[in-house]
């Protein structure tokens, strides 16, 4: 009973928050609702007893959306409404149809519950982090390693793109030298 009330509460909250994130013209509202939506999703994990995944969801997305905020701060005036320039009808159509298809597939799964089963079911002997580790390092080892390599590539790419002038520190340069550089 309690679980069902909590589930519907979180569902309505999540959908509502993400709708605000998509439709709001205000950058601040959009990003705040995105962040809160991500936090609310952690609630679903707690509901089904996957505490570890819930906390990971919380930690990862709190940090990730924080970085998004930093970009929002640099690119937009966050207290004013944003005018979006182009709205391509073609893209809206494609994305809409894909979303509708996905929804249909999801509901098909709900109609036939036998089609949904856990390939690595939880056992009562393991704690939450142990179960996640078991799944990651046995059945899903290859995707896990591929993701790790992808992240490494992203990190190297970031360093290469951002690190062109890393050998000189702007704070260590004397004021006179900085002025000379400005005049050049």
């Amino acid at each position: 009973m309690f679980e069902q009330i909590a589930f519907y509460f979180f569902s309505v909250l999540t959908i509502g928050l993400f709708l605000v994130a998509v439709f709001s013209k205000n950058v601040l509202y959009a990003m705040t609702s995105l962040a809160s939506g991500m936090v609310v999703i952690a609630g679903f994990f707690f509901l089904v007893g996957a505490d570890f995944l819930g906390v990971v969801q919380l930690i990862v997305y709190v940090g990730a959306v924080m970085a998004l905020y930093a970009f929002g701060m640099m690119f937009f005036n966050v207290t004013k409404n944003l005018k979006e320039k182009t709205t391509s009808t073609g893209w809206v159509l494609i994305v809409g149809v894909t979303a509708a298809l996905l929804m249909t597939l999801m509901f098909l799964g709900a109609i036939n519950p036998d089609a949904i089963y856990a390939s690595l079911p939880m056992s009562d002997k393991m704690t939450n982090p142990e179960a996640v580790g078991m799944a990651l390092f046995t059945k899903y080892l290859v995707p896990f390693e591929v993701a790790a390599v992808m992240l490494l590539i992203a990190m190297i790419g970031g360093i290469v793109l951002a690190g062109k002038k890393m050998d000189t520190s702007l704070t260590d340069i004397k004021d006179e030298v900085l002025q000379l550089k400005d005049e050049e």
């Binding site: 505490d51 570890f52 919380l58 930690i59 709190v62 982090p129």
Partner: peptide, 18 residues
């Protein structure tokens, strides 16, 4: 008494920076 106490505390405190 959740079995991931320390992660939960650090995660929630991180959310507090919002």
């Amino acid at each position: 008494d959740i079995n991931i106490g320390i992660l939960f505390i650090l995660g929630t405190m991180a959310a507090g920076l919002y």
